[in-house]
Simulated assay, not measured.
Amino acid sequence: MMDLLGPVEIRSLAEKLDLRPTKKLGQNFVIDGGTVRRIVRVAEVEADDVVIEVGPGLGSLTLALLGAARHVVAVEIDPVLAGQLPVTVAARGLGDRLTVVEADALKLTPTHLSGYLPTALVANLPYNVAVPVVLHLLEVLPSLRKGLVMVQSEVADRLAAGPGSKVYGVPSVKAAWYADVRRAGPVGRTVFWPVPNVDSGLVAFTRREPPTTTATRRQVFAVIDAAFAQRRKTLRAALSGWAGSPARAEEALRAAGVDPSARGEQIDVEAFARIAENTPSQPPA
């Protein structure tokens, strides 16, 4: 069985690196071997997978992934951690299966990845950037077929929410453009160091084709943003700025088969795509 990092090893490494976990970088390190094994199991990582891990930190989850996947591409923004991770992995004889990319995941492109095409995203994501990181990677890495991320519990709820839910919103609809998303279980606070003051949860996704539409992703996302900018308004009112007037918004909604008196939280991504197909031309000046 893979020699994983426990609480003693984590604190020893942190002391060696003079590391003080920062809230700014969302650094809460997993210190429980059972939790990282569970993540790898629930993520259904297979022997031929190339896994991209964002924010590997000191390597708790990385080591468990290396024991299951063909290769791991670890994206770490902290230069000290990015420098230490290959040392930790090499000490266990797995250095040839790890590529460390020192970069901001929000600016990551395929050119950063040394020719690897990740098939799975598995990560304990910094909670302050979890949603934009997931959406960005799904956009720029079409090779991603599946994933499992650990995020703040409320963020997990929002990502996995369906129409009609109180927490259904922009993250829910945009994630649904790329994938089927579901909650995959809670995570206790005590598996982290330092212990966070929020609950965590696992979110799994499976890539699917986006809705069939003549609209571009950018056009669909513009409608989604407009619809939720003023949640309490009807779509007729919320989309009036996007369309140019309430009347033009109603015209686009009716053409899409959507009730103009509905609200954004009531409709699915396919409906947003139909609305975007009716993107109005700019009214004459």
Results as ranks from 00 to 15, higher is better:
16 K>E: 15
252 A>P: 01
160 A>M: 09
41 R>E: 15
229 A>S: 15
233 K>S: 07
172 S>E: 12
51 V>Q: 07
41 R>C: 05
33 G>R: 02
160 A>G: 13
39 I>Y: 06
34 G>L: 06
188 G>P: 00
177 W>E: 04
156 A>Y: 12
187 V>A: 10
203 V>T: 14
43 A>E: 13
141 L>N: 08
246 P>G: 13
67 G>F: 05
275 I>Y: 10
28 N>S: 14
220 V>N: 01
125 L>I: 06
145 R>G: 15
55 G>L: 01
61 L>M: 06
71 H>Q: 06
53 E>C: 07
61 L>W: 02
155 V>N: 00
145 R>D: 02
35 T>Y: 02
245 S>H: 08
5 L>K: 10
159 L>A: 08
239 L>M: 07
123 A>R: 01
185 G>I: 07
29 F>T: 10
60 S>N: 06
130 A>C: 07
107 K>E: 14
191 V>W: 04
215 A>L: 03
47 A>I: 09
171 P>R: 09
242 W>G: 08
151 V>I: 13
23 K>S: 14
18 D>F: 01
157 D>R: 14
23 K>V: 15
137 L>H: 08
92 R>Y: 08
162 G>C: 03
196 P>W: 02
59 G>T: 08
184 A>D: 10
4 L>E: 11
60 S>I: 09
283 P>Y: 04
111 T>N: 11
165 S>Q: 13
110 P>H: 05
145 R>A: 11
185 G>A: 12
174 K>R: 14
214 T>H: 03
12 S>R: 15
157 D>L: 12
44 E>A: 15
279 T>S: 03
167 V>D: 15
207 R>C: 03
11 R>T: 08
137 L>P: 04
130 A>K: 03
88 T>I: 14
274 R>C: 05
217 R>M: 11
227 A>S: 14
158 R>D: 03
127 Y>R: 10
226 A>S: 15
163 P>V: 05
29 F>C: 03
29 F>S: 09
48 D>K: 09
55 G>D: 01
173 V>A: 13
198 V>C: 06
16 K>A: 14
72 V>P: 12
200 S>E: 00
160 A>P: 07
212 T>N: 13
79 P>E: 12
142 P>D: 10
239 L>N: 07
114 S>Y: 09
266 Q>Y: 04
26 G>D: 12
198 V>S: 06
274 R>N: 04
241 G>Y: 03
204 A>K: 06
102 E>S: 11
208 R>T: 00
181 V>E: 07
124 N>H: 11
163 P>S: 05
60 S>P: 00
200 S>C: 07
129 V>L: 12
97 R>L: 05
22 T>A: 13
251 E>F: 04
58 L>W: 03
164 G>K: 10
217 R>W: 12
236 R>Q: 14
25 L>T: 05
272 F>I: 00
97 R>F: 05
135 L>F: 00
85 L>C: 13
207 R>V: 00
249 A>L: 10
261 S>C: 00
244 G>S: 09
132 P>T: 13
57 G>V: 04
80 V>Q: 08
148 L>K: 07
64 A>M: 08
45 V>H: 02
126 P>T: 10
149 V>A: 02
117 L>T: 12
126 P>E: 10
225 D>Y: 00
83 G>M: 11
242 W>M: 09
110 P>W: 04
204 A>D: 00
49 D>W: 01
158 R>A: 04
